[in-house]
Amino acid sequence: MKLLLPVVIGVLFGGGTYLMLKKNILKLVLGLGLISHGANVLLISSGWIGAGAVPILGQDGTEGFVDPVPQALVLTAIVIGFAALAFLLVLAIRVYRDLKTADISEIRGQRG
């Protein structure tokens, strides 16, 4: 169980990077999505202390809960990532429609 989160994070980052290296524009978007999720999980893992209970008011004591702060943070991060990804998708479609291609190397035609 302790190994699970690192493995998940690793898989997300690795898969994301792999997808980003592809030439297809949609795969780039998906890759970025995976990476941002990897980062989210990483953030969650920073407050993870084993099998803690849900940090909700009303229970007694302060022992045995997971740290609520990363969860609050990750919620924000998810919202932001969601918005940015949605925007990127819209743009990807626009690019596809303008250039009639999903090949990234075509977009980089500009002088760099």
Binding site: L32, G38, A39, S46, A84
Partner: peptide, 20 residues
């Protein structure tokens, strides 16, 4: 935006690291 998303992920990872 691709750059921005990637940076955000990096930023989050760094923030997670420092929080941990």
């Amino acid at each position: 935006i691709s750059m921005g998303l990637f940076t955000s992920a990096l930023f989050l990872a760094a923030a997670g690291g420092i929080y941990a």
